[in-house]
Lab assay of single mutants.
Amino acid sequence: ETIMEVNLLKGPKGLGFSIAGGIGNQHIPGDNSIYITKIIEGGAAQKDGRLQIGDRLLAVNNTNLQDVRHEEAVASLKNTSDMVYLKVAKP
Rank of each mutant, 00 (worst) to 15 (best):
64 N>K: 10
85 Y>L: 12
82 D>A: 15
6 V>E: 01
27 H>D: 09
58 L>M: 15
75 A>L: 13
1 E>D: 15
32 N>R: 05
24 G>E: 11
71 E>H: 03
77 L>P: 00
7 N>L: 05
61 N>S: 07
51 L>E: 00
39 I>E: 01
26 Q>D: 13
83 M>T: 14
6 V>N: 01
90 K>Q: 15
59 A>S: 13
84 V>W: 03
35 Y>D: 00
23 I>R: 11
14 G>Q: 03
61 N>M: 13
44 A>I: 14
85 Y>R: 10
37 T>D: 09
83 M>E: 08
8 L>V: 08
68 V>A: 09
75 A>W: 06
79 N>V: 14
10 K>C: 06
25 N>P: 06
59 A>Y: 12
52 Q>V: 11
10 K>H: 03
69 R>D: 06
58 L>S: 03
48 D>V: 03
59 A>R: 08
90 K>E: 07
68 V>Q: 07
36 I>A: 01
83 M>Q: 14
63 T>Y: 04
28 I>G: 07
66 Q>V: 06
19 I>C: 12
90 K>S: 06
15 L>V: 05
51 L>F: 04
53 I>M: 11
68 V>C: 15
79 N>L: 14
58 L>K: 09
13 K>V: 10
35 Y>W: 06
41 E>P: 13
88 V>N: 01
80 T>P: 13
87 K>R: 06
57 L>G: 00
60 V>W: 02
73 A>M: 03
89 A>R: 07
33 S>T: 13
48 D>S: 09
75 A>V: 13
91 P>T: 11
89 A>Q: 03
37 T>Q: 06
64 N>I: 14
53 I>D: 11
36 I>P: 00
66 Q>K: 11
42 G>M: 08
3 I>L: 06
11 G>V: 05
15 L>P: 07
12 P>T: 08
75 A>H: 10
90 K>C: 08
63 T>A: 11
53 I>Y: 09
72 E>N: 07
42 G>R: 08
37 T>N: 14
7 N>Y: 05
3 I>R: 03
78 K>G: 13
41 E>R: 13
51 L>H: 00
71 E>N: 08
25 N>K: 13
81 S>G: 10
75 A>C: 10
8 L>D: 00
89 A>D: 10
66 Q>I: 07
49 G>N: 09
83 M>K: 10
10 K>Y: 09
16 G>F: 00
54 G>M: 09
41 E>F: 09
58 L>G: 01
50 R>S: 12
63 T>Q: 09
14 G>E: 04
27 H>E: 11
6 V>M: 08
86 L>V: 06
59 A>I: 14
47 K>P: 03
73 A>P: 01
16 G>R: 01
90 K>V: 04
43 G>V: 01
10 K>W: 02
42 G>P: 04
30 G>N: 09
13 K>I: 10
1 E>R: 05
69 R>W: 11
47 K>D: 13
32 N>S: 13
30 G>M: 11
37 T>L: 05
86 L>P: 01
76 S>P: 02
55 D>H: 09
65 L>D: 00
6 V>K: 01
13 K>T: 04
8 L>S: 01
84 V>N: 15
2 T>S: 11
72 E>G: 06
3 I>K: 09
12 P>R: 08
40 I>M: 11
15 L>Y: 02
13 K>R: 09
74 V>W: 10
18 S>W: 15
38 K>L: 08
5 E>K: 15
49 G>R: 05
85 Y>F: 09
42 G>I: 02
86 L>N: 00
87 K>P: 01
66 Q>M: 15
31 D>A: 04
76 S>K: 14
30 G>E: 08
34 I>C: 07
11 G>A: 08
42 G>V: 02
67 D>Q: 14
10 K>L: 07
58 L>R: 03
54 G>Q: 05
55 D>K: 00
71 E>T: 07
76 S>E: 15
20 A>Q: 09
21 G>H: 02
63 T>F: 08
86 L>C: 03
